[in-house]
Amino acid sequence: MQPVNKIAQRNQKYIFSKKNIKRLNQQKYLLLMSLPFVIWVIIFKYIPLWGWTMAFQQYIPGKGFFQQEWVGLKYFIIMFQDNYFYLVLRNTLAMSILSLIFGFTLPIVLAILLNEITKQTFKRMVQTISYLPHFVSWVIVASLFNKMLSIDDGVVNNILMALRIVEQPVQFMAKPNFFWGIVTFADVWKEIGWNSIIFLAAIAGISPELYESAMVDGAGRFKKIWHITLPGILPTVMVILIMSIGNLINIGFEKQFLMRNSLVRDYSDVLDLYILDYGISAGRWAFGTAAGMFKSLVSIILVFTANGISRKVAGIGIITK
Protein backbone atom coordinates (compact mmCIF):
# COMPACT_ATOMS: atom_id res chain seq x y z
CA MET A 1 0.00 0.00 0.00
CA GLN A 2 2.78 2.42 0.91
CA PRO A 3 4.42 2.60 -2.51
CA VAL A 4 1.10 3.29 -4.19
CA ASN A 5 0.59 6.27 -1.91
CA LYS A 6 3.97 7.68 -2.73
CA ILE A 7 3.34 7.41 -6.42
CA ALA A 8 0.08 9.17 -5.92
CA GLN A 9 1.78 12.02 -4.13
CA ARG A 10 4.39 12.41 -6.79
CA ASN A 11 1.82 12.44 -9.52
CA GLN A 12 -0.28 15.16 -7.98
CA LYS A 13 1.99 17.74 -9.54
CA TYR A 14 1.24 16.90 -13.12
CA ILE A 15 -2.43 16.54 -13.58
CA PHE A 16 -2.37 15.31 -17.15
CA SER A 17 0.89 13.43 -16.98
CA LYS A 18 1.03 10.11 -18.75
CA LYS A 19 1.17 8.25 -15.50
CA ASN A 20 -1.86 9.99 -14.21
CA ILE A 21 -3.86 9.25 -17.28
CA LYS A 22 -2.79 5.68 -17.03
CA ARG A 23 -3.82 5.65 -13.42
CA LEU A 24 -7.18 7.14 -14.29
CA ASN A 25 -7.61 4.40 -16.80
CA GLN A 26 -6.71 1.82 -14.20
CA GLN A 27 -9.17 3.27 -11.76
CA LYS A 28 -11.99 3.72 -14.21
CA TYR A 29 -14.18 1.33 -12.31
CA LEU A 30 -13.55 3.07 -9.00
CA LEU A 31 -14.33 6.38 -10.67
CA LEU A 32 -17.40 4.92 -12.27
CA MET A 33 -18.55 3.54 -8.94
CA SER A 34 -18.04 6.78 -7.07
CA LEU A 35 -19.19 9.30 -9.65
CA PRO A 36 -22.95 8.79 -9.25
CA PHE A 37 -22.63 9.04 -5.50
CA VAL A 38 -20.50 12.15 -5.65
CA ILE A 39 -23.17 13.72 -7.84
CA TRP A 40 -25.81 12.46 -5.43
CA VAL A 41 -24.14 13.90 -2.37
CA ILE A 42 -23.65 17.25 -4.01
CA ILE A 43 -27.23 17.49 -5.17
CA PHE A 44 -28.91 16.31 -2.01
CA LYS A 45 -26.53 17.48 0.68
CA TYR A 46 -24.64 20.48 -0.63
CA ILE A 47 -27.01 22.36 -2.92
CA PRO A 48 -29.50 22.97 -0.07
CA LEU A 49 -26.73 24.76 1.81
CA TRP A 50 -27.68 27.90 -0.09
CA GLY A 51 -30.17 28.11 2.75
CA TRP A 52 -27.39 29.35 4.99
CA THR A 53 -27.81 32.75 3.39
CA MET A 54 -31.02 32.98 5.39
CA ALA A 55 -28.96 33.53 8.51
CA PHE A 56 -28.14 36.98 7.20
CA GLN A 57 -31.64 37.89 6.05
CA GLN A 58 -34.92 38.88 7.61
CA TYR A 59 -36.18 35.89 5.68
CA ILE A 60 -39.80 35.83 4.58
CA PRO A 61 -40.80 32.60 2.82
CA GLY A 62 -41.83 33.12 -0.77
CA LYS A 63 -40.09 36.43 -1.35
CA GLY A 64 -37.33 36.35 -3.95
CA PHE A 65 -33.71 36.05 -2.92
CA PHE A 66 -32.98 39.69 -3.68
CA GLN A 67 -36.18 41.01 -2.18
CA GLN A 68 -35.24 39.81 1.28
CA GLU A 69 -33.98 42.33 3.78
CA TRP A 70 -30.33 41.72 4.62
CA VAL A 71 -29.45 42.05 8.28
CA GLY A 72 -25.84 40.93 8.42
CA LEU A 73 -24.75 39.25 11.62
CA LYS A 74 -27.71 40.50 13.65
CA TYR A 75 -28.97 37.06 14.63
CA PHE A 76 -25.55 35.73 15.53
CA ILE A 77 -25.13 38.69 17.85
CA ILE A 78 -28.59 38.18 19.37
CA MET A 79 -27.72 34.57 20.04
CA PHE A 80 -24.32 35.19 21.57
CA GLN A 81 -25.68 37.96 23.76
CA ASP A 82 -28.47 35.83 25.15
CA ASN A 83 -27.74 34.49 28.62
CA TYR A 84 -30.24 31.76 28.09
CA PHE A 85 -28.19 30.49 25.15
CA TYR A 86 -25.28 29.71 27.47
CA LEU A 87 -27.60 27.96 29.89
CA VAL A 88 -28.94 25.64 27.20
CA LEU A 89 -25.44 25.12 25.86
CA ARG A 90 -24.28 24.02 29.30
CA ASN A 91 -27.18 21.59 29.64
CA THR A 92 -26.62 20.25 26.14
CA LEU A 93 -22.95 19.57 26.66
CA ALA A 94 -23.48 18.11 30.12
CA MET A 95 -26.07 15.62 28.93
CA SER A 96 -24.13 14.81 25.75
CA ILE A 97 -20.97 14.07 27.65
CA LEU A 98 -22.84 11.91 30.14
CA SER A 99 -24.42 10.08 27.26
CA LEU A 100 -21.03 9.63 25.63
CA ILE A 101 -19.58 8.20 28.81
CA PHE A 102 -22.40 5.78 29.56
CA GLY A 103 -24.47 5.54 26.40
CA PHE A 104 -21.40 4.70 24.39
CA THR A 105 -19.45 2.34 26.63
CA LEU A 106 -22.23 0.23 28.10
CA PRO A 107 -23.39 -1.17 24.74
CA ILE A 108 -19.80 -2.28 24.13
CA VAL A 109 -19.79 -4.02 27.49
CA LEU A 110 -23.12 -5.63 26.65
CA ALA A 111 -21.82 -6.84 23.29
CA ILE A 112 -18.78 -8.39 24.90
CA LEU A 113 -20.79 -10.05 27.64
CA LEU A 114 -23.25 -11.36 25.06
CA ASN A 115 -20.39 -12.78 23.09
CA GLU A 116 -19.37 -14.80 26.13
CA ILE A 117 -22.73 -16.50 26.30
CA THR A 118 -22.47 -19.94 24.82
CA LYS A 119 -26.15 -20.86 24.63
CA GLN A 120 -27.16 -19.48 21.25
CA THR A 121 -30.90 -19.40 21.90
CA PHE A 122 -30.44 -17.51 25.15
CA LYS A 123 -28.07 -15.09 23.51
CA ARG A 124 -30.52 -14.37 20.72
CA MET A 125 -33.33 -13.92 23.19
CA VAL A 126 -31.37 -11.33 25.15
CA GLN A 127 -30.44 -9.55 21.95
CA THR A 128 -33.97 -9.41 20.64
CA ILE A 129 -35.54 -8.34 23.90
CA SER A 130 -32.97 -5.73 24.83
CA TYR A 131 -33.52 -4.12 21.45
CA LEU A 132 -37.26 -3.69 21.97
CA PRO A 133 -37.25 -0.40 23.94
CA HIS A 134 -35.66 1.30 20.94
CA PHE A 135 -39.05 1.04 19.28
CA VAL A 136 -41.03 2.41 22.18
CA SER A 137 -41.49 6.14 21.69
CA TRP A 138 -40.10 8.66 24.16
CA VAL A 139 -43.63 9.72 25.06
CA ILE A 140 -44.23 6.30 26.54
CA VAL A 141 -40.80 6.02 28.14
CA ALA A 142 -41.10 9.44 29.77
CA SER A 143 -44.49 8.58 31.16
CA LEU A 144 -43.17 5.28 32.55
CA PHE A 145 -40.25 6.98 34.29
CA ASN A 146 -42.47 9.64 35.75
CA LYS A 147 -44.75 7.02 37.22
CA MET A 148 -41.92 4.90 38.58
CA LEU A 149 -40.22 7.88 40.23
CA SER A 150 -43.42 9.44 41.55
CA ILE A 151 -43.96 10.01 45.28
CA ASP A 152 -47.53 8.90 44.73
CA ASP A 153 -47.14 5.11 44.85
CA GLY A 154 -44.09 5.10 42.56
CA VAL A 155 -42.26 1.80 42.42
CA VAL A 156 -38.82 3.23 43.20
CA ASN A 157 -40.00 5.07 46.30
CA ASN A 158 -41.95 2.04 47.46
CA ILE A 159 -38.80 -0.07 47.30
CA LEU A 160 -36.63 2.57 49.00
CA MET A 161 -39.22 2.94 51.75
CA ALA A 162 -39.56 -0.80 52.23
CA LEU A 163 -35.80 -1.14 52.52
CA ARG A 164 -35.76 1.83 54.94
CA ILE A 165 -33.20 3.62 52.80
CA VAL A 166 -35.32 6.76 52.92
CA GLU A 167 -37.90 7.85 55.46
CA GLN A 168 -39.93 10.15 53.24
CA PRO A 169 -40.56 9.46 49.56
CA VAL A 170 -38.09 11.36 47.40
CA GLN A 171 -39.54 13.48 44.64
CA PHE A 172 -36.86 12.58 42.12
CA MET A 173 -38.37 14.43 39.18
CA ALA A 174 -38.56 17.66 41.17
CA LYS A 175 -34.83 17.75 41.90
CA PRO A 176 -32.99 19.76 39.27
CA ASN A 177 -29.65 18.13 39.99
CA PHE A 178 -31.08 14.66 39.36
CA PHE A 179 -32.39 15.50 35.93
CA TRP A 180 -29.25 14.92 33.87
CA GLY A 181 -28.72 11.58 35.54
CA ILE A 182 -32.30 10.45 35.05
CA VAL A 183 -32.27 11.35 31.36
CA THR A 184 -28.96 9.59 30.82
CA PHE A 185 -30.20 6.51 32.63
CA ALA A 186 -33.39 6.43 30.58
CA ASP A 187 -31.42 6.87 27.40
CA VAL A 188 -28.99 4.07 28.20
CA TRP A 189 -31.82 1.77 29.16
CA LYS A 190 -33.74 2.53 25.99
CA GLU A 191 -30.87 2.27 23.54
CA ILE A 192 -28.39 -0.19 25.06
CA GLY A 193 -29.59 -3.18 23.05
CA TRP A 194 -29.91 -1.27 19.83
CA ASN A 195 -26.49 0.34 20.14
CA SER A 196 -24.81 -2.96 20.92
CA ILE A 197 -25.80 -4.44 17.55
CA ILE A 198 -23.02 -2.74 15.69
CA PHE A 199 -20.42 -4.00 18.15
CA LEU A 200 -21.84 -7.50 17.95
CA ALA A 201 -21.36 -7.31 14.21
CA ALA A 202 -17.80 -6.16 14.73
CA ILE A 203 -17.15 -9.08 17.05
CA ALA A 204 -18.64 -11.43 14.49
CA GLY A 205 -16.05 -10.15 12.04
CA ILE A 206 -13.13 -11.27 14.21
CA SER A 207 -11.55 -14.39 12.82
CA PRO A 208 -12.28 -17.41 15.07
CA GLU A 209 -8.78 -18.69 14.41
CA LEU A 210 -7.44 -15.96 16.66
CA TYR A 211 -9.51 -17.34 19.53
CA GLU A 212 -8.48 -20.89 18.72
CA SER A 213 -4.79 -20.10 18.79
CA ALA A 214 -5.25 -18.16 22.04
CA MET A 215 -6.97 -21.22 23.47
CA VAL A 216 -3.96 -23.31 22.49
CA ASP A 217 -1.75 -20.81 24.31
CA GLY A 218 -3.93 -21.34 27.37
CA ALA A 219 -5.23 -17.79 27.57
CA GLY A 220 -8.07 -17.25 30.03
CA ARG A 221 -11.40 -15.58 29.36
CA PHE A 222 -10.33 -12.11 30.33
CA LYS A 223 -7.06 -12.37 28.44
CA LYS A 224 -8.99 -13.31 25.32
CA ILE A 225 -11.33 -10.38 25.74
CA TRP A 226 -8.44 -8.04 26.34
CA HIS A 227 -6.11 -9.29 23.63
CA ILE A 228 -8.47 -10.41 20.90
CA THR A 229 -12.02 -9.11 21.24
CA LEU A 230 -11.18 -5.55 22.19
CA PRO A 231 -8.45 -5.00 19.60
CA GLY A 232 -10.73 -6.67 17.07
CA ILE A 233 -13.52 -4.17 17.56
CA LEU A 234 -11.27 -1.19 18.24
CA PRO A 235 -11.49 0.25 14.70
CA THR A 236 -15.29 0.17 14.83
CA VAL A 237 -15.31 1.60 18.36
CA MET A 238 -12.97 4.41 17.41
CA VAL A 239 -14.76 5.51 14.25
CA ILE A 240 -18.08 5.54 16.04
CA LEU A 241 -16.55 7.42 18.96
CA ILE A 242 -15.12 10.05 16.64
CA MET A 243 -18.42 10.51 14.85
CA SER A 244 -20.28 10.71 18.18
CA ILE A 245 -17.92 13.39 19.43
CA GLY A 246 -18.84 15.34 16.33
CA ASN A 247 -22.44 15.02 17.42
CA LEU A 248 -21.91 16.23 21.00
CA ILE A 249 -23.81 19.40 20.27
CA ASN A 250 -26.58 17.71 18.26
CA ILE A 251 -28.48 16.33 21.20
CA GLY A 252 -32.03 16.49 19.85
CA PHE A 253 -34.66 17.50 22.35
CA GLU A 254 -37.36 14.89 22.43
CA LYS A 255 -36.34 13.09 25.61
CA GLN A 256 -35.57 16.23 27.57
CA PHE A 257 -38.75 17.85 26.34
CA LEU A 258 -40.91 14.95 27.41
CA MET A 259 -39.23 14.19 30.72
CA ARG A 260 -38.84 17.68 32.08
CA ASN A 261 -41.27 19.60 34.27
CA SER A 262 -41.54 23.19 35.46
CA LEU A 263 -39.26 22.67 38.43
CA VAL A 264 -36.23 21.46 36.50
CA ARG A 265 -36.35 23.70 33.46
CA ASP A 266 -33.02 25.32 34.23
CA TYR A 267 -31.39 21.94 33.81
CA SER A 268 -33.54 20.42 31.11
CA ASP A 269 -33.66 22.95 28.31
CA VAL A 270 -31.31 22.06 25.50
CA LEU A 271 -29.94 23.77 22.44
CA ASP A 272 -32.11 22.05 19.84
CA LEU A 273 -35.29 22.99 21.65
CA TYR A 274 -34.05 26.53 22.08
CA ILE A 275 -33.41 26.74 18.34
CA LEU A 276 -36.87 25.43 17.55
CA ASP A 277 -38.63 27.74 20.02
CA TYR A 278 -36.83 30.90 19.06
CA GLY A 279 -36.25 29.94 15.43
CA ILE A 280 -38.87 28.36 13.23
CA SER A 281 -41.69 28.32 15.78
CA ALA A 282 -41.47 32.07 16.13
CA GLY A 283 -41.02 32.52 12.37
CA ARG A 284 -37.40 33.59 12.87
CA TRP A 285 -35.85 31.60 10.05
CA ALA A 286 -32.68 33.65 10.28
CA PHE A 287 -32.16 32.80 13.93
CA GLY A 288 -32.73 29.11 13.35
CA THR A 289 -30.30 29.07 10.45
CA ALA A 290 -27.66 31.05 12.34
CA ALA A 291 -27.86 28.65 15.26
CA GLY A 292 -27.69 25.71 12.84
CA MET A 293 -24.54 27.12 11.30
CA PHE A 294 -23.00 27.56 14.71
CA LYS A 295 -23.76 23.93 15.48
CA SER A 296 -22.28 22.75 12.19
CA LEU A 297 -19.12 24.68 12.83
CA VAL A 298 -18.72 23.27 16.33
CA SER A 299 -19.41 19.75 15.07
CA ILE A 300 -16.88 19.93 12.28
CA ILE A 301 -14.20 21.32 14.59
CA LEU A 302 -14.96 18.59 17.12
CA VAL A 303 -14.94 15.77 14.62
CA PHE A 304 -11.69 16.77 12.98
CA THR A 305 -10.01 17.35 16.34
CA ALA A 306 -11.18 13.99 17.61
CA ASN A 307 -10.03 12.42 14.40
CA GLY A 308 -6.62 13.97 14.71
CA ILE A 309 -6.17 12.83 18.29
CA SER A 310 -7.40 9.34 17.49
CA ARG A 311 -4.99 9.03 14.60
CA LYS A 312 -2.10 10.02 16.79
CA VAL A 313 -3.07 7.87 19.76
CA ALA A 314 -4.71 4.81 18.25
CA GLY A 315 -3.72 5.09 14.63
CA ILE A 316 -7.34 4.99 13.58
CA GLY A 317 -9.22 7.77 11.86
CA ILE A 318 -12.39 8.28 9.90
CA ILE A 319 -10.85 10.01 6.92
CA THR A 320 -7.93 7.73 6.28
CA LYS A 321 -7.10 4.64 8.16
Binding site: S34, F37, V38, V41, I42, K45, Y46, I47, P48, L49, W50, G51, W52, M54, P61, M243, G246, N247, N250, I280, W285, G288, T289, G292, K295, S296, S299, I300, V303, I318, I319, T320
Partner: peptide, 17 residues
Protein backbone atom coordinates in the same frame (compact mmCIF):
# COMPACT_ATOMS: atom_id res chain seq x y z
CA UNK B 1 -14.83 11.92 -1.41
CA UNK B 2 -14.39 10.90 2.23
CA UNK B 3 -14.39 14.46 3.49
CA UNK B 4 -17.28 15.31 1.19
CA UNK B 5 -19.31 12.61 2.89
CA UNK B 6 -18.17 13.18 6.48
CA UNK B 7 -19.18 16.82 6.39
CA UNK B 8 -22.72 15.89 5.40
CA UNK B 9 -23.21 14.36 8.84
CA UNK B 10 -22.96 17.76 10.45
CA UNK B 11 -24.47 20.25 8.04
CA UNK B 12 -27.98 20.86 6.83
CA UNK B 13 -29.42 23.55 4.65
CA UNK B 14 -32.66 23.59 6.58
CA UNK B 15 -36.26 22.88 5.85
CA UNK B 16 -37.04 25.33 3.08
CA UNK B 17 -33.98 24.76 0.85
Amino acid sequence: VTILYIITMYVSGGLIP
